[in-house]
Amino acid sequence: MPTDTREVVIRTEGLTKHFGDVHAVEDLNLTVRRGEVYAFLGRNGAGKSTTIRLMLALIKPTAGSVEILGHRMVPNAIRALERIGSMVEAAGSYGNLTVRENLELQRKLLGLRRGSWVDEAVELCGLEEYLDRRVDTLSLGNKQRVGFGRALLNKPEVLILDEPTNGLDPVGIADVRALIKRLAAERNVTVFLSSHILSEVQQMADTIGIIHNGRLLEEIGYEELRRRNREYLELRVSDTKRAAWALEEKCGVRDFVVIEGSAVRVYSGFDRAEEYTRSLVEAGVGIISAHMSEENLEDHFVKLTGRGSGDEAAETPAEKTGGSQR
């Protein structure tokens, strides 16, 4: 696999946060690269928000460190925060102020000069028609847009968003998704977002990190995820090495993976299934079962997080890739 040479903009090392006996985040090691959309997936209470709070220096780590844009967040948060936009959980605003006033207030706090900053954020978030309305008269979704607009005011290099689509209607969700993709593609903004909505994440993330019980279980690249989403023919066999050889040499199949010690998954040429099984048998490989299947992120997520503690789930055997990959 080629080495990713993009600059690392967010790095956590051994990041740990305990609240008394509760181990909210445990030894978290994340790497997020410039221009990447990194989705942080986890169930409620998995440690997503705590991680984001640690990243933004809203809470102090029990151990470990967070480095963003080359600055350690403890104690140098201010230098990094100048280049970060963020929205943490419910995007609260001052209800007695209008949308414009809320954005202007944030502009002042950010120390930005008067100018196009607010106008641009308004346009990006589709807030034009609500500018002079008090925030306490807006719907939840539009309040979320205001929060999003505030996060974009300083034209951030890094955008950290905690559940950014919460409270949005389907159109609003699609808008946010498009905006995130656009920011990453056109402005090279690095986006780190937390979510528990798998379908959302699948559509915009370059990399997905799955956290459970405060531990990072897995990081999956987009290409890997696509591969997981494909249909496959799973052959549970007695000897995976021999099966791989037979598929490659006898059938000319390149698009398959070996599930260590148990099965091979073939991702194409399903109409040749009979030929595959015959070749395997001829090569002396015992076939225990053969079936068509499709694994998606949801299956994968449940498989990882649904097995009790994070420790257990982390022990899931890693899949090793064989054959060619797309």
């Binding site: 809203l58 201010i78 925060l81 943490v88 959980e89 419910a90 609260g92 605003s93």
Partner: peptide
């Protein structure tokens, strides 16, 4: 700011 959920916005500004 805490009761209205705005505190995190304020505390994540570079001030």
């Amino acid at each position: 700011e805490y009761s209205e959920g705005v505190a995190t916005n304020v505390l994540t500004t570079p001030t």
